[in-house]
Amino acid sequence: MESAPIVHELPWGDVWGQDEAVAQLQAAASDPASMTHAWLITGPPGSGRSTLAYAFAARLIAGDGDGVDHVMRQVLAGTHPDLTALRTEGVIISIKDARALVERSYFSPSLGRYRVIVVEDADRMTERTSNVLLKALEEPPERTVWILCAPSDADLLPTIRSRVRTLRLRDPEVADVARLIVQRTGVDPAVAEQSARLAQRHIGMAQRLATDAASRTRREQILRAVLGVRGVGDAVEIAGRIVQAATEDAKALTAERDEAERASLLRTLGVPEGAAVPPAVRGQVNALEDEQKRRATRSLRDGIDRVLTDLQSLYRDTLMLQFGRDTDLINRELEQDLRALAAAWTMQRTLTVLDQITLTRSNLEFNAAPVLALESMLITVASGRTP
């Protein structure tokens, strides 16, 4: 017997390539008796886990009564009173934010069937923050649903994992992502394929690469520069270039938004454009600026992390060539250089560099100075030995 086709309508219209997950959540939302009140949606960056979480939240809150579409649109826009969402743009989720979520979780739904708490990037919770959520996840009120999102269940504490139902999203193929990028942007299919491959199937990053030639050029320049590292002097120079490029990228992504937020806050506080900020409201402006600084730090770290992901793909390709496999290279445009590197290096040296990239990522998560962490990593690239 064939299963019924999935209808991709509101709220599922923006969920792409996850038919099995959509079917599972649709079934859960339609059968309150089998509902689980704490979910963990996992998937690689760009797989759509947050999009799916909000679609599920919309369906849970709206139910099947009158005005369903209107309620769903409110939820998807983030304006429904029964939705509480935490989208942290800092390095970590604070205990204060976690406590606020727990407090909200004990409120009864005001209009919808359920109160839904969505936590994006739940992997950014420290152990102490995770412990704040434990009891609320274990014994939530009857009509409260928690939806956590993270790259993998391994990114959360075992005590959290034991209290949630995990839904793992599939990793899309390069060809699938390329087709989606063509549909969304109209770019040349060859550019879309290259971008999807270089982004390692991360949909958002693939779209950015496909529509921004400067981003593609900058990526290639950084990888070629790293391939040319021969000593400590090169390591210092290239580390500085990577941090500078990530800093400029972060500023470009946040500057316009920061200014708009500040202008909006000042209008709300009744401060005329161009006027000095009165002492009475300076605290609120300072609080906004502090939040923007935390967001800028996260954006910088994310930019450097993206470079580390690109470097992992570079040395992954090198290792593949050392094993005699050349049919699934990510960085095909650099194949000639990678073949030369694969011939010059031992497999052990390549593995040492890959291990050091992983260690660098971990060190940055623990607030290591970006330039120093990258310098250390690039010295390993130059020497084949950890400092």
Score class of each variant (00 low, 15 high):
T268L: 04
E2C: 02
T126F: 04
S152I: 03
Q194G: 12
I92N: 15
R73F: 04
V132T: 12
S34D: 09
T327A: 10
I181M: 11
R49W: 08
L137T: 14
L180A: 03
I6E: 05
E193G: 13
L265M: 04
A175W: 06
E291Y: 01
R218P: 06
A98E: 04
N286Y: 01
H80P: 04
D14I: 02
R298V: 03
S50V: 09
N286V: 05
L374E: 15
T217E: 14
A150P: 15
R113L: 00
K96Q: 15
I203C: 11
E139F: 11
E333N: 12
M320R: 03
E261P: 04
N363D: 13
Q26R: 10
G112V: 02
L329S: 10
A373R: 02
I222L: 15
L133K: 05
T360Q: 07
I222W: 08
V229M: 06
L76D: 05
L319Q: 07
F56R: 02
T126H: 07
D302M: 03
A62R: 00
Q24S: 12
M320E: 13
L319E: 12
P5K: 06
T211Y: 06
T297F: 02
S110F: 00
D355I: 02
V281G: 11
V174T: 14
D234N: 10
D123F: 07
N131L: 10
A239C: 14
G17W: 04
L319Y: 03
V353H: 08
L338C: 03
G90D: 08
P44A: 14
M72S: 01
R298M: 09
W16K: 04
E220S: 13
Q194E: 15
A196N: 08
G384M: 06
I222T: 15
A275T: 14
R385P: 03
R124T: 10
K251W: 06
E261C: 07
L52P: 11
R230I: 07
R197C: 10
T36I: 09
T159E: 14
L25M: 12
E261W: 07
S50I: 03
I117G: 03
L157D: 12
A77Y: 00
V71H: 00
W39F: 11
R325A: 13
Q322T: 15
G112F: 00
L372I: 08
A280F: 07
M320H: 13
I242P: 12
H202I: 05
A250Y: 05
S299I: 10
K96F: 05
E220Y: 05
A85L: 09
L321Y: 03
L338H: 09
